[in-house]
């Protein structure tokens, strides 16, 4: 009796996980769009690679905010660590190979995430917000104090990196940069997807929805959060490294509040806890920024403020949430 029950439960758990892990046809859409953009906008590829970098950054935030429910305003810290890892390696040690640079960035940022996570993740609410913000500003001050190494607020301009895989050199039109960023984004997306559909990923959602209950069924809450935070920090570090690779410069502005807030806005726009929200949020945010900031930076800032307020009040699930709701309505399933 008990044995058959256990078998039935295990089968249900497997079916539940399999249902979540199943690839849906719509998941191909972002990648098709990204590849199509390469051919449709050959003169906007530099901008395109910025979008891809920010999509990766937003994806890393989705793991902690969207899945694990950790509210942080300091994710730019890890982005900045990644960017400065490859920047300093290239400028000071002549280590210009990009792929090992990405690995080094992921390692440094992941290490920083684990180290700060051990302490920070014990906090919640305002204290966590303040601590994550402060960590980012400390890093910025740190970079400013050691300006002989980091270049201070002028940053590290004119970085040069070796060709990707030793073959594909960066070109003036940003073709290599775009495809390189797209490939890295794809690999990181697969990793993030594998994580969130795994039992581990499901337990993160459990922690987000009801931390007390996860504690009471014996889940190691702090350990799970720490792993998620570390992986997310490493991915943010990769995004930062890509940012440095594709722009060929780094400045201390990567640690700005605007960077942490911007990535948060992208994720919210796209929709949290859905992986692909990061992708669409980054696209919409960057395109809007590009077209509105032409008039004036203040115009763009007003636009993003308004967008954020409207999203929070009326479309809390973001663009993907709206699309899903529309899809349900079309199928006649009601709102």
């Amino acid at each position: 009796m008990a044995a058959t029950d256990e078998i039935a439960v295990a089968a249900r758990a497997r079916r539940f996980l399999a249902a979540h892990a199943r690839l849906r046809p719509t998941e191909a859409l972002p990648w098709l769009v990204a590849v199509a953009a390469f051919f449709v906008f050959p003169d906007r590829l530099t901008f395109g690679s910025q979008v891809l970098v920010m999509a990766l950054f937003a994806l890393s935030l989705d793991l902690v905010l969207g899945y694990a429910g950790i509210l942080t305003l300091g994710h730019a810290a890890f982005f900045g660590i990644g960017a400065y890892t490859v920047g300093l390696l290239a400028a000071r040690l002549d280590w210009t190979e990009p792929l090992t640079g990405l690995l080094a960035a992921a390692t440094c940022a992941g290490f920083a995430g684990a180290l700060s996570g051990v302490v920070l993740l014990r906090y919640r609410g305002l204290t966590l917000l303040v601590l994550t913000l402060s960590t980012t500003f400390i890093l910025q001050e740190f970079g400013n104090v050691f300006d002989r190494v980091t270049g201070g607020y002028d940053g590290l301009p004119g970085l040069s990196f070796s060709p990707v895989l030793g073959v594909f050199d960066y070109d003036l039109f940003g073709r290599t940069a775009y495809l390189y960023a797209l490939a890295v984004l794809f690999v990181c997306f697969c990793l993030a997807r594998a994580i969130v559909v795994s039992p581990f990923g499901r337990s993160l959602v459990g922690i987000r929805e009801n931390t007390a209950r996860m504690h009471s069924i014996g889940a190691p809450v702090h350990g799970r959060l720490l792993v998620a935070y570390t992986v997310s920090a490493a991915l943010a570090g990769v995004a930062g490294a890509l940012h440095a690779h594709t722009n060929a410069f780094v400045t201390l502005s990567v640690f700005d509040f605007e960077n942490s807030a911007g990535v948060l806005v992208m994720l919210i726009l796209g929709g949290t806890g859905r992986l692909y929200g990061a992708f669409w949020g980054a696209v919409v945010y960057m395109v809007l920024q590009d077209s509105l900031a032409k008039f004036s930076p203040a115009f763009w800032q007003a636009g993003v403020g308004l967008l954020l307020i409207v999203t929070v009040l009326f479309a809390r699930a973001g663009i993907l949430g709206l699309v899903e709701a529309a899809g349900r309505r079309l199928r006649g399933g009601g709102p």
Binding site: P297, W300, A302
Partner: peptide, 26 residues
């Protein structure tokens, strides 16, 4: 948003802050 999550409150008030910064820059 009194009973909404901290995230929602953070987002709304960041939105207001950006609007204010834009208005005063203008």
């Amino acid at each position: 948003l009194y009973r909404a999550s901290e995230l929602d409150q953070v987002l709304l008030t960041i939105g207001l802050t950006f609007l204010a910064i834009a208005a005063f820059t203008w």
